[in-house]
Nucleic acid binder design. Structure first.
Length: 639
RNA sequence: GCCGACGUAGCUCAAUCGGUAGAGCAACUGAUUUGUAAUCAGUAGGUUAGCCGUUCAAGUCGGCUCGUCGGCUCCA
């Protein structure tokens, strides 16, 4: 038998052909049970793959990112096996990949899975794990695979096979269950020790709503018991951070059935936070050379025909209303109005760039099933702006916008977000040169700011490339927030022009951008970011004064007045309650500072300062405390 | 919109097999005057999401509608 050279780390050795990664690792004394697969020249393979050529091998540890993925993928197979054991061979299984934090498998069967079924399936999985069936890989010619899955009556598998370009496909068998799969897998089912099934959900075959709705079971698996426990604990904690729960508890906002789904009622506390955000937002826009606009909520259908929304966006718009025999529509976007302001007179190249900003409230019809607290609603206020720029100005303006976005995210203390640069799709308007120019400008801008980003090739909108910032909620789900979009389309449609140096008409490029996203979504993620405990500068109530008894109320009122005069958001808790009860309530309200006032404070002209979640900080003079608070507010300190 | 689960007092939750809807907190009234996370007592609070049906009897069983939640799809 011939020899092959295998390199592991820096060690190159000869082995006889047909040796497996497991045997190689064993011979080098680096094998352990935590190694579940191997990488051959960077490609993951099974531990028992027979090696036939020179290669570089690396072990894949169960705890590594790749190891976890393999483990979870194998878990999905084991789940499918368990489902078939319980519900019979008539169950059609579709796809079962590993995903972030877990795995799922989609099934097609008559019976609807119940939570009790999940327990049964989990129990059956434990049995399969105990049996410790090896995962056996087999490579088949396509025709044979087709024959196999035809016999098994698995149409989804047949559909997948028909789309695989290769002549052969691989299948994996553990015990009595066989699945079409690229692999690799854990060596045997016994390796799956720490897993849990989490939920059932509907999912269209291939994510297309024209296809059949399948039943998806989500689960998770980890290398260690500890990690699984930690993840389940994280899910519990995430529930506590849920902005919908906190919004109710902290009396920030509500959604009323009679008002309508997806329509937000901002309560005084929530509205105060929004007011602070908006004031800050406006100041920053003035600093950065923006001008403010106010535009109507409705417009003639004619406007939406020019903009193209009538043709391409109608399904997201509320139905038209008839006024004086004409049709009007509620706005889903602000851009056409801003363009009309631009077009209200002749513009010179000297006027550009023009930056129009508006906190514009828009309404979009969203399918009922997708609404989600503040994060997906039907009426929302975009912190919108439209920039009209020349080609020469494009790059600088994009950098300016992105810098602005970045500044906002940092100031609000967001540490969880992803940035995506979406490039030209197949169908597009505008010249190739302009696309190049704009895409490049976006790239230069993110790189200049040293922001980590991913490229979404071809995911741009037809009218121009864009950068999206996706904010992440307590459960790790992404929600589109700030975005900068270049638009080559609307200036054409509206025939937007400026007069250049040459005295001729030119077409400006338009930028759409939001630096927060929408007030609703931004507020929702902000609540989750801080679990409701807003930093001082944002807190709806910044200071709560707690007099110990009636005798201290007069002095407490004086402290209150001083803070109030200095525009600190302060409340005096003069209820007939015990101090401890008042402290408890203030803590539950997540008020940053609690001032206790008793005999000592009155006689010494001080306040006893208690910091939210930290406890007693001791006594301070009233002045001292006021300065501390004012400084912290001014500096927008995040604690 | 689709699949599934859920909807009981302002909030969080009970209510056995279909047999008089109940508790804690909050609210209100009174007492208590308090030193760093809940003072005590009393009062009031309900078309059990809505409508229709089965039944002697429905919070409970069935149907429809609305809403919420988890997903699919879509987006700020």
């Amino acid at each position: 038998m011939s020899e092959i050279k295998i390199k592991v780390k820096d060690n190159e050795k000869s082995f006889s052909q047909g040796i497996s990664p497991k045997e190689v690792f064993e011979s080098l004394n680096i094998f352990s049970r935590s190694i579940i697969a191997a990488k051959k020249d960077g490609k993951p393979i099974d531990l028992n793959t027979k090696l036939s050529e020179d290669c570089i091998l690396e072990p894949i540890n169960i705890g590594s990112e790749e190891g976890e993925e393999i483990l979870r993928h194998s878990a999905s197979h084991i789940m499918a096996q368990a489902v078939i054991h319980i519900f019979g061979k008539d169950v059609k299984y579709a796809i079962g990949p590993a995903i972030e934090n877990g795995f799922y498998y989609d099934f097609d069967l008559e019976h609807s899975f119940t939570p009790e079924d999940l327990e049964k399936i989990e129990a059956e999985m434990r049995k399969i794990v105990k049996e410790n069936y090896p995962f056996e890989r087999k490579v088949l010619p396509k025709e044979e695979a087709i024959k196999l899955f035809t016999e098994l009556n698995q149409p989804y598998k047949l559909e997948i096979i028909s789309e695989i370009p290769d002549d052969t496909v691989s299948i994996y068998t553990q015990g009595d269950f066989t699945d079409l799969c690229r692999g690799p897998h854990i060596p045997s089912t016994g390796y799956l020790k720490n897993f849990k099934l989490l939920s059932v959900a509907g999912a269209y075959w291939r994510g297309d709503e024209k296809n059949k709705m399948l039943q998806r079971i989500y689960g998770t698996a980890f290398a260690t018991k500890d990690e699984l426990k930690k993840y389940l604990h994280f899910l519990e904690e995430a529930k506590k951070r849920d902005h919908r729960k906190l919004g109710k508890e902290l009396d920030l906002f509500s959604i009323n059935e009679n008002v309508g789904p997806g329509l937000i009622l901002w309560h005084p506390k929530g509205a105060m936070v929004r007011k602070v955000i908006e004031d800050f937002w406006k100041d920053e826009h003035i600093k950065r050379g923006y001008q403010f606009l106010y535009t109507p909520h409705i417009a003639r259908v004619d406007l939406w025909k020019i903009s193209g929304h009538w043709d391409f966006y109608r399904e997201n718009m509320f139905s038209p209303m008839e006024v004086d025999k004409g049709l009007y529509m509620v706005k889903p976007m602000n851009c056409p109005f801003h363009i009309m302001v631009y077009k209200s007179k002749m513009r010179s190249y000297r006027d550009l760039p023009i930056r129009y900003a508006e906190l514009g409230t828009v309404y979009r019809y969203e399918k009922s099933g997708v609404l989600h607290g503040l994060l997906r609603v039907r009426g929302f206020t975009q912190d919108d702006a439209h920039l009209f720029v020349t080609e020469e100005q494009l790059e600088d303006e994009i950098i300016g916008v992105l810098d602005f976005t970045n500044y906002m995210i940092e100031t609000f203390g967001f540490d969880k977000y992803n940035i995506y640069l979406s490039t030209r799709p197949e169908k597009y308007v505008g010249s190739l040169e302009n696309w190049e120019l704009a895409t490049n400008a976006l790239k230069v801008a993110v790189e200049k700011l040293e922001l980590p980003y991913k490229i979404d090739p071809g995911e741009g909108v037809f009218y121009g490339p864009k950068i999206d910032v996706k904010l992440i909620d307590a459960l790790g789900r992404e929600w589109q927030g700030p975005t900068v979009q270049v638009d080559f389309n609307l200036p054409e449609r509206f025939d937007v022009t400026y007069i250049g140096k040459d005295g001729k008409e030119h077409r400006p490029i338009m930028l759409h951008r939001v630096v927060l996203g929408s007030m609703e979504r931004f507020f929702g993620t902000l609540i989750e970011q801080y679990a409701g405990a807003f930093p001082l500068w944002l807190a709806p109530v910044q200071v709560k004064i707690v007099p110990i008894s009636d005798a201290h109320k007069e002095y407490a009122k004086k402290v209150y007045d001083l803070l109030f005069e200095n525009r600190v958001r302060v409340e005096l808790d003069d209820r007939n309650e015990k101090m401890n009860a008042k402290i408890r309530d203030a803590e539950k309200e997540k008020v940053p500072y609690i001032l206790i006032i008793g005999d000592r404070e009155v006689s010494e002209n001080t306040v006893s300062v208690r910091k939210r979640r930290q406890g007693n900080l001791g006594a301070q003079s009233v002045r001292e405390f006021l300065n501390r608070v004012l400084t912290e507010i001014k500096e927008k300190t995040i604690d």
